[in-house]
Structure formats: C-alpha cells, structure tokens
Amino acid sequence: MIKLAAMALIGAVSAVGAAQAVVSLDPTTRSDGLRAAVAHFVPEPQPAPAEGGAASIAKASDGHYWAQGVVNGASVRFLVDTGASAVALTAADAQRLGFDTARLNYGYKVMTANGEARAAAVKLASVSVAGAKLADVDALVLDKGLDASLLGMTYLGRLSSFQATRTSLILQP
C-alpha cells in the first residue's frame, strides 16, 4: 500500500512539473520576448558585425548555414551543425591547419551521416566566424565520413547566444 501511495505521489508531482513546463513554453505566458519572436516571422535587419560583436551568417540556397571561418589563422569552410557535439574537422582541413593526421590518436568512435568514424581530440587555438572569435576550442578530427568540417557545439555552446532566423544565423560572442 505504501508503494502504491509513493508511486501516486511521484506521478502527481511529475504531472504538475510537466504542466508547468508546458505553460512556460506557451508564448502567450512568456514576457521575455519569445512571444514577439513567435508572432513575427520576418527577421529584423542585422547590423554589420564588429570585432567581437554580433555576427551574421546568411542561410544558403540549400537551406544550410555555411560559414567561412578562420581557424588558427587559416581559412576553413564550415557547415553549422547544432546537432554536432563538437567542432569536427575533415582530415584534409586538419592537415591544412598543420595537424599531422597520421600521428593523431583516433581513440573516439563517432557517428556521422555516413556511418561510424574514428576521431581524435585536438585543441584549436582560435576560431573566428564572421567576427565572433573564441580561443581554445575543443575539436575532433575525423578519419573519414565528413564531406565538410562542422561548426558544432564546442564553439556554438560557448557563445552568449545564437539564433536561427528564416534568412540568417546570428552569433553573439
């Protein structure tokens, strides 16, 4: 009987918590600007990015956000991927950046769109995308499976914020 009462109590608390979470996601009950964002689907024009200020990446015709970045002083073309846990470099990009890919320790297994691959952890001294620059960014070098390097969450997650609109991705360092 006590087990049943405890389970009922846990269920009730969970239901109340879930209801509160749903209410907090309702744009009509939020006062933090989400209501305005939901009501207006037309993005506002963004100013040109200043060094260290807000940066904007235009959405490409294929529907993706492609970013030209500067990594350790060299140019790298990234596919912005919020589903990627880390910045992921192709072997070719890693070699251009000066990493000896033959000597890296590929001790991690990762899943890519093309299947499983091996990855090596590296540290990037600096990553700058449209003026949003970060130092000491963790990244992975994949031995295969990537058609383009990915700008993942080890970069994006360190920004103050990032926002995807219908036409651009806004990065706030």
Rank of each mutant, 00 (worst) to 15 (best):
V23Y: 10
I10E: 07
S85A: 14
A91L: 10
D62K: 09
D62E: 08
A86K: 08
V13W: 03
A6W: 01
G17M: 11
D81A: 02
A19Q: 11
D32E: 06
G83V: 04
A94M: 11
D81G: 01
S24N: 15
G63E: 00
R35Y: 12
A36N: 01
V22W: 12
Q20G: 05
P43E: 08
A18Q: 09
D81Y: 04
A39N: 12
T28V: 15
R30Y: 07
A5E: 03
V16C: 08
F78H: 04
P49A: 12
A8Y: 02
V76P: 01
I57E: 03
K59G: 05
E51A: 15
G83W: 05
A18K: 06
A92K: 12
G33W: 01
S85Q: 13
V76C: 01
V71D: 07
H40S: 15
Q46K: 09
A48G: 00
V23C: 04
A39D: 13
P47H: 04
V22N: 08
D26E: 12
L89C: 07
V80A: 05
P47E: 12
A94S: 10
A84G: 04
Q20C: 08
G53V: 01
Q68H: 11
V71G: 07
V76S: 02
V70M: 01
V80I: 06
P43M: 09
A18M: 14
A67V: 00
G63C: 00
T82V: 02
V70T: 13
P49N: 05
A36C: 00
K3M: 11
A15Q: 07
Y65K: 01
A60I: 04
G53Q: 07
N72S: 05
P47C: 03
A21P: 00
F41S: 14
Q46A: 14
A37Q: 14
L34D: 03
A21Q: 13
L9M: 13
V80S: 03
S61F: 10
A6P: 00
N72A: 03
Q46D: 02
V42I: 14
G73S: 10
Q20H: 10
Y65V: 03
Q68G: 11
A18T: 11
T82N: 08
F78P: 02
D62Q: 10
A12R: 03
T28A: 14
A37G: 02
L9F: 12
Q95A: 15
K3N: 12
A58L: 12
E44M: 02
R77I: 10
P43I: 11
I2L: 13
A8P: 00
A12H: 02
G11W: 01
G53R: 04
S56R: 15
P45I: 11
A54Y: 00
S85C: 04
A19D: 08
A19E: 12
I10S: 13
A58K: 13
A37T: 06
V42W: 05
P47F: 01
T29R: 15
G11S: 07
V42C: 01
Q68W: 05
Y65D: 00
A19C: 07
A54M: 09
V13T: 04
P43V: 11
A39V: 06
Q20L: 15
A54P: 10
Q68S: 12
V22D: 11
L89W: 01
V71C: 09
P47M: 08
G33Q: 05
S56T: 15
A74Y: 01
A5T: 04
S85L: 03
L79F: 06
F41V: 13
L25R: 14
P45N: 11
K3F: 08
A74C: 00
P47G: 08
V76F: 02
